[in-house]
């Protein structure tokens, strides 16, 4: 019967955790809607989440576009449709790969750091100190991070898309000899506003999702059933935040795609 007790305890913990995270998100949204905003904190977070991620995004975007160019060329050439390479690269990047890979990169680079930062603040009583100073930790810590996530993810996704398309161009046109005009003309004909809109909506949702999961994992570190104390607790919470964010990004990607198609 012990396994049944453990199963019950785990289910109760899971429901409690989901409840905490939902309340956390609602409190963040309420604070997001009420001005004034601390511009210097928002700029700091935009720098951390956005500007500091640009290099990783350019690098990933370039190689993703190049691989798409290669794979797309060899697949399309079997049907004599090399001219459609631009459409294939553009649509894949703008609708799917751009938002998803950007979000996964930001999770790995910034999301993990956010979880660790908030977790350490929780462990060293800095969050308690904020509350005792009558400073709302949601307003002071979370709102700038959420706003930065909402602003940065669509911008980083756009950079990823553009660099990826150029990467596909370099491989497809410069290395494999696809006609330059057909690469861009095909893309121009097939990519419509709805595709761009879908990509931006996805990246916006992923921005909220990453900050929500990573920040809440750190914020509720002390309530973790597995013990949230010390460096090991922070490390466990960070790993769990990155895994949960990454899985959630893929699940949400499917849900948004199925709703918007």
């Amino acid at each position: 019967m012990k396994w049944l007790e453990e199963l019950g305890a785990n289910i109760i913990e899971l429901v409690a955790q989901m409840g905490r995270m939902t309340v956390f998100l609602l409190r963040c949204i309420c604070n997001l809607l009420i001005p004034p905003y601390n511009l210097s904190h928002i700029m700091q977070q935009i720098h951390f989440i956005g500007a500091a991620s640009v290099f990783v995004i350019i690098f990933t975007g370039a190689f993703t576009g190049m691989v798409l160019g290669l794979q797309g060329y060899y697949s399309l050439s079997q049907f004599g449709s090399e001219a459609a390479l631009g459409s294939a690269v553009g649509l894949s990047l703008i609708r799917e790969l751009g938002p998803v890979l950007t979000a996964l990169m930001v999770t790995g680079r910034a999301g993990s750091a956010i979880c660790a930062e908030i977790g350490i603040m929780r462990n060293s009583e800095q969050i308690d100190a904020l509350e005792c100073m009558a400073i709302d930790p949601f307003r002071y810590l979370m709102v700038p991070k959420f706003l930065a996530g909402i602003i940065c993810l669509p911008l980083l996704t756009s950079i990823f898309d553009v660099v990826g398309i150029l990467g596909g161009f370099v491989v497809g046109v410069n290395l494999l000899g696809v006609n330059e005009g057909s690469y861009f003309h095909g893309m121009y004909k097939s990519v419509v506003w709805k595709d761009i809109y879908m990509g931006l909506v996805k990246s916006l949702c992923f921005g909220i999702l990453i900050i929500w999961i990573c920040a809440s994992k750190g914020f509720f570190l002390h309530l973790e059933k597995s013990g949230g104390f010390g460096a090991e607790g922070v490390s466990r919470a960070t790993t769990s935040a990155v895994v949960l964010s990454s899985v959630s990004i893929l699940v949400w990607d499917y849900l948004i795609t199925s709703m918007m198609l």
Binding site: M121, S124, E125, Q126, D128, A129, E131, C132, M133, A134, I135, Y140
Partner: peptide, 29 residues
Amino acid sequence: RTKFGVLFQGAALFDSITVFDNVALPLRE
């Protein structure tokens, strides 16, 4: 809580900002 002042066991200073900013934080906020 505006009437409270608290010195925590581990001081609970914000480690990413300077001593000046730590003390100035309640005044700014």
